[in-house]
């Protein structure tokens, strides 16, 4: 408390009466209320509503039907597909992103290449959604640039086995387009935290490039790499817009299941099913993000 009061005491002097002090403190607390009310109305209440409606029926009585509905075959399949897409794009994205980070090592942080790649990464990591869907339809849709090139020049038809771009497999290349840049943003600080002295120590002790990476760099980087991998998983698992723009029919992944439950006008009580699905998503997200923060604390030890 001494910390907080010192700034108040400057004007009042050390001998300011405690009552005035208390009034000031109360006034300061009042300053926190706009934010508190805002967060309550638009974050706390919506989140609570989202994860709790699943336990009610349309007319407000408690039920477990929606939550048990999560174990229906089509919902389980959607969770499976979501896990599949998130895991594959997280692993591939993390590896490719880490390679890019490695390639950037040793470049001046304020140089032209670095600052271009930094900015491009932060744009592309945000690039999910409708515009990304357009880009991939233009590239590898039925009449896409790459599709036509492969067909006309090399005689390869990438759609021999059906129109996969507009189904779950199509999400893989598209999601990677924002996963790799996200990896570059989150993993670069860790790679930069490697101290040159460690490499020098390795070299003076007769170590090779291989021993530096296997004995020093990779063990030090492992928690950070796994943490970033979890963040990528969470990022893919929670993204909706790209899939919604690409896949107009069906509900192959969980976010699309929520869309189907929310916009269906024919079946009553589906809104509560959306609540149960939201609960399922939040449970997965909380577990993944908890793992991320645990790994993050382990990482920050090295970055000091």
């Amino acid at each position: 408390m001494t910390d907080a009061s010192s700034s108040v005491d400057v004007s009042g002097g050390a001998g300011a009466p405690p009552r005035r002090h208390r009034l000031r403190a109360a006034g300061s607390y009042l300053g926190l209320t706009p934010f508190a009310i805002y967060v309550l109305l638009f974050l706390a209440i919506p989140t609570t509503l989202a994860v709790s409606t699943g336990f009610f029926t349309e007319d407000g009585t408690l039920t477990l039907d929606n939550v048990t509905g999560l174990f229906a075959p089509n919902v389980l399949a959607a969770f499976g597909a979501s896990f599949f897409v998130s895991a594959v794009t997280a692993v591939v994205g993390a590896i490719v992103g880490a390679l890019v980070c490695y390639a950037l090592l040793g470049l001046r942080p304020d140089g032209a290449v670095r600052s271009f790649i930094d900015s491009a990464s932060s744009v592309l990591a945000q690039f999910g959604g409708v515009m990304l869907a357009f880009a991939f339809i233009a590239l590898m849709g039925g009449q896409g640039l790459l599709t036509l090139f492969l067909k006309d020049q090399l005689g390869i038809n990438i759609y021999e086995n059906g129109n996969w771009l507009y189904q779950v497999p199509g999400l893989l290349p598209v999601y990677l387009y924002f996963q790799v840049p996200l990896m570059v943003i989150t993993f670069m600080p860790a790679l930069q935290g490697l101290k040159l002295t460690w490499a020098e120590a390795n070299a003076t002790l007769g170590g090779t490039r291989l021993t530096y990476w296997t004995r020093i760099a990779i063990p030090v980087l492992a928690p950070s790499f796994l943490g970033s991998l979890l963040l990528l998983f969470a990022n893919a698992f929670s993204s909706y817009a790209t899939a919604a723009a690409l896949i107009s029919q069906g509900a192959q992944i969980v976010p699309l299941q929520i869309r189907a439950a929310l916009v269906s006008e024919t079946v009553l009580g589906r809104e509560n099913m959306a609540g149960a699905l939201a609960l399922g998503m939040v449970v997965v997200m909380v577990v993944v993000m908890w793992g991320y923060s645990v790994l993050q604390t382990r990482t920050s030890r090295w970055q000091r």
Binding site: P46, T47, L49, V51, S239, Y240, A278, M281, M285, V286
Partner: peptide, 21 residues
């Protein structure tokens, strides 16, 4: 903690509760 909650609560989840709000 409050400010990073929106990362854990995806927009598609938040919107389920935003509809009644």
């Amino acid at each position: 903690f409050i400010c990073i909650i929106p990362i854990t609560v995806p927009a598609i989840v938040l919107v389920v509760g935003l509809a009644p709000v």
